[in-house]
């Protein structure tokens, strides 16, 4: 049994309006910092995986596409570590 960890990053696709990012960017401006011109919000997940067979990565990608990200508006990226 190998124990692996996957970190999944979910972010909005380019061109999709991110009102939270825009609001955070404005707040940073209001704080007096003027060097941050754009903020994009997103989410990340850490998955502990107990599995031996070889198609773990494919199945984790499936989980991301079906549940963790909504492919209509979001992209995801998975990083695996042993």
């Amino acid at each position: 049994m190998s124990n692996r960890k996957a970190t999944v990053y979910v972010r909005l696709k380019d061109g999709v309006l991110d009102p939270q990012g825009v609001t955070i960017q404005r707040a940073i401006l209001n704080m007096g910092y003027d060097m941050v011109s754009s903020v994009k919000s997103g989410r990340f997940f850490e998955l502990e995986i107990d599995a031996e067979d070889g198609d773990v990565e494919a199945r984790i990608n499936e989980i991301c596409g079906k549940l963790l990200a909504n492919p209509v508006i979001e992209n995801f990226q998975v990083e695996f570590e042993k």
Partner: peptide, 17 residues
């Protein structure tokens, strides 16, 4: 329904949050 794929598109956070 949109999450299930029974209807097209997505429902995002309101523009004014």
């Amino acid at each position: 329904l949109v999450e299930s794929g029974l209807l097209p598109g997505a429902l995002m956070r309101n523009e004014h949050l």
